[in-house]
Design a protein around this nucleic acid. Sequence first.
DNA 1: ACTATTTTGGACAAATAATGCCAAAACAAA
DNA 2: TTTGTTTTGGCATTATTTGTCCAAAATAGT
Lengths: 106, 106
Amino acid sequence: MSTVEKISFGQYIRELRENANLPLRRVASELDIDTSTLSKIEKNERNANEQIIDGISKIFHIEKSELKLRYLSDKITYQLLDEDNGLEILKVAEEKIKYQRQQNKK
Amino acid sequence: MSTVEKISFGQYIRELRENANLPLRRVASELDIDTSTLSKIEKNERNANEQIIDGISKIFHIEKSELKLRYLSDKITYQLLDEDNGLEILKVAEEKIKYQRQQNKK
DNA sequence: ACTATTTTGGACAAATAATGCCAAAACAAA
DNA sequence: TTTGTTTTGGCATTATTTGTCCAAAATAGT
C-alpha cells in the first residue's frame, strides 16, 4: 500500500533521516542551513526550497521529482483543505495546466 | 463554451470591470485600495486577498466561491506549470485532501 | 492637436515572512 | 543524577512582499 497521501513532506524527510541514523546537525550542515530550520521543516512549520530539496535528493539518493511531488502536493493540499470546493478547484487547475501546455506548443 | 480554464483571474476581473464600464479609480476606491494596486492585480502582477475577493464579489454580484475558484486554480496552475509531473502532483493532492477530510470526520 | 481622464511603472515605506543564533528542553548512556 | 548530545522554541536580524504616491504613458473626447 502506498502511503504518499498519508504522510506529510516533513514526516517523510524526517523518516529518511532517522532511517539513516543521522542527527539534524549532520544533515543541516550538508544542506548549509541551521539545525533549527531543518527541525522546523521536518515539523512542517517552515517551507523547504529548491536548494533544500536538491540537497536532500543528493544525501538520501531520492529522485528530485519524488521529493517535489511530496512537497508540492502537500502545499496544495494545505491551500485547499478549507475550501469547500477544493476538489473542483483542482479539476480546474488541471484543465488550466493542460490548456497552457497546449498553447505553449504552438 | 466555458472559458474558466482559458482566462486568468486578472483578465476575468478586468472584464467584469470593463463590462460594467467602471474605471479602476471607482472600483479601487470601493475596495479601499490604490488604483495602482488594482491595476497590478488585473495584470496578474500582484496577488489578491480575501478582502479584495470579498469586495469584488459584492460589487459585481459574483459568488465568492466562483472568484476563489478562479483565483486559487490560477495560483496552483502557476505553481505547477513548470513541473514535468505537474498533473501527477495534482492527483496526489486530490488523494491527500480526500484522506485528510476522511480523517477529520472521525 | 489639445485637454481631460484613465492606466501603468517605479521609487519608497510599511508590513510580513524567512532565517540564523542561542539558550533551554528533551533524550540517551552511564 | 550527571554528562554529553540532539532537538526545539523564542528572539533578533535580514529578506521579501505589499501597498501608496506620483509622474509618465496611454486612451478617449472634442
